[in-house]
Nucleic acid binder design. Sequence first.
RNA 1: GCGCGCUUGGUGGAAUGGGAGACACGCCGGCUUUAGGUGCCGGUGCCUUCGGGCGUGGGGGUUCGAGUCCCCCAGCGCGCACCA
Length: 834
Amino acid sequence: MTETVDSDRDPVDRDPVDRYDVHATESRWLAEWERLGLYRAGGEDDPRPRKYILDMFSYPSGDLHMGHAEAYSIGDVGARYWMMRGYNVMHPVGFDSFGLPAENAAIKRGLDPVAWTYANIETQSAAYRKFAVSFDWSRRLATSDPDYYRWTQWLFLRFFERGLAYRKASPVNWCPDDQTVLANEQVVAGRCERCHAVVTKRNLTQWYFRITDYADRLLDDMVELEGTWSDQVLTMQRNWIGRSVGAEVDFVIEGHDAPVTVFTTRPDTLFGATFFVVAVDSDLAATLAAGGEHEAAYLAYRDQVAAISEVERLATDRPKTGIFLGRYAVNPVNGERMPVWAADYVLADYGTGAIMAVPAHDQRDLDFARAFDLPVRVVINTAVGDASAVEAGTALGGDGTLVNSGGYDGLAKDEAIERITADLAAKGAGKKAINFRLRDWLISRQRYWGAPIPIVHCATCGEVAVPDDELPVRLPDSTTVDLAPKGISPLATAAAWLHVPCPKCGGDAQRDSDTMDTFVDSSWYFLRYCSPSYEDGPFDPAAVRRWMPVAEYTGGREHAILHLLYSRFFMKVLFDLGLVGCEEPFAALYNQGMVVMAGSKMSKSRGNLVNLGDELAAHGVDAVRVTMLFAGPPEEDIDWADVSPTGASKWLARVWRLAGEIGAAAEVDEAEDPPLRRTTHATIAEVTRLVESHRFNVAIARLMELTNALRKSVDAGHLGAPSVNEAIAALTTMLAVFAPYTAEECWARLGHEPSVHQQSWPVHDPALSTAQTVTCVVQVNGKLRDRVDVAPDVDEATLQELALATEGAQRAIAGAAVRTVVVRPPKLVNIVLG
RNA sequence: GCGCGCUUGGUGGAAUGGGAGACACGCCGGCUUUAGGUGCCGGUGCCUUCGGGCGUGGGGGUUCGAGUCCCCCAGCGCGCACCA
């Protein structure tokens, strides 16, 4: 018998039941594991098959919370399982450590962002260790390390060289609270994704990544992810990219030099176009209105629209507004003159910011036509309705045949689209086109705590890349910078840092004073992990080829179209640069649910925060982990009010007591318990399958059943039997992935040397897991009437005979005629009466 | 509005088209304990004349057999949302 944990127990406590002291266990094994140096990924020569298990890294905002506990419990099971299965597993840890909270802490509380961030990193690192996450600590990185952001900048310059990073002036999303611009992906329903302030628009010159160049590949390559990523995330990415197939059509505007192009998915409805609309906030609208008699009215309308918030503007049930610009566009298919209007229902940044309006077949156009009494012409005969429906205000969508469309009458939709597009192309007035909803990724941020953009602006040379050998462009000391939000980057206030000679001509020049979006940092961290101290590039290409793609990626659903889309984009660019060997970074993605409290998201303002530290102090790490994993399927939310850490504690203590009793007993062959052997081997088979399919709640239920079976067996006098020893060994080994401390403690109580975490996952013997008899269900007319125990290989005829003879079947048949008997050996017989 | 998903005891949840409610929580009873508990054992869907009847949001269908597959409806949740 090995040491017990109750050495510090009160000697006057005469309690006959051993008490499992979780906290003493934790401190003992935490130190021992450090000494053993577990969980380090194998090197280049390691012959084991590799598996890259990754958890989304955390932002070091403070200590870990309940959400972290859930996410890392889930990711850790996979990592530990594959290690025990003999894989060379890389399970790295790092910190997404640039970002606003550090800067806001600096502004509010006068702290140095560097000190604040790195203190939090140490706090979180200690918490991860305590929580027993099987991380390879030798690979730890932080995106705010100069050794890391040097390569973020290096990658930016490769993008810049290829024209994938560029600057343009454009109306951009502006968060008035955070005093910085935001990417489209960071605006949720018109509000800032982070602070929920209502976003406004500003015209600014900013840096963009040309993600739209990769729209097709980002969309098409999703077929590779089908089945290993959730449909929900794939759908969200598809919708976000938003590919529409149609045509571009050129309209001549009378008195305007260049024709105006519109995008439409329905060129077959061209003959139904009765007016033309340009986005009120587009340059085109201003140009068309300029100098005309309607200019004043246009400007007034534009100001009126500008005053409405983005949130209000997004409300779809708003009445349509607009203004006539006094101009006419000419329909290229029939030469008709159509009035040109400006309206806010047409978006400046989608398509060309101008549309042909076909009110009979587009609800928005119809609403507009009815508001301003514009003509409506039905040009498609559809099954869904007719002119009277249009009259009543319902546009006719769907397929049909063309009418009122000149020589195209009678054609079906698809053929009409084909012909009309081809005819336009022949006239030089249009062509087939594909349009995306995806916009280029705006990466400039007017904040201090991020990777500086490694560009120098020179009056003579323009935008000049900082030479690679001068990277990193380090952040100036925060004390030399005015961090207060003022709409321009704090870096612009660090005069000594800002002014540098132009790398090209040596003349006076200025550094770009913006920093990069932190999503740039996190778009390649999984590559840096492969060779975290590599000095000749962002990563060692050979190491990346060995480890990538990530086999299992665990993280929250909130990144469905942010981090996950950006990372996929980066990977494709790096593939094109020849730096990586695969185009998709994450072979499988698991989205864990959230931890909520009493039905709602935990928050300070709701007063329903559950403090992880308190839970750990009350129940211990293992009980909290098991509670998270046992609560339900990992992808579902956990309501902490509905679950029971007490239940988990009880189970772990049961296993601990069993291990103590069994470990203390001498092995005796005569007390064998064959049914327990079967349970053990059946459990191994099932838990293996369940862990691989991420059904941890059911896997734990099976281990609880094995525990119960083992308790019964020991109580029935089988203590010392090989079957009992085998069962506790299997249970302890499998428990290691869910409750690492308790498993290690049990392993020691069984008399083994540490560590259980270096043991192999148990292997089930099919010969032992097969039962000698199975219970066959006897149904009459589909209703359960009796059961009969039979051999697993019973034949149909025998089984039918046995079933018909059962008391329950006879009572239910009660002399009635048997029409047919469905026999499914060995589990079921259904007797159908006539 | 469009798209997707979900709906099973008091609760969280199990169930390759074949025994509904595994495993837990909670509750009830018993045992052990000076007492308490994170100990041990048993019970726990509803009804019952103890034969059985009913039961997976509601309605219909397919099938020898449906929680599971199909159709309709309701409720809840999520995503997108004037994307031409």
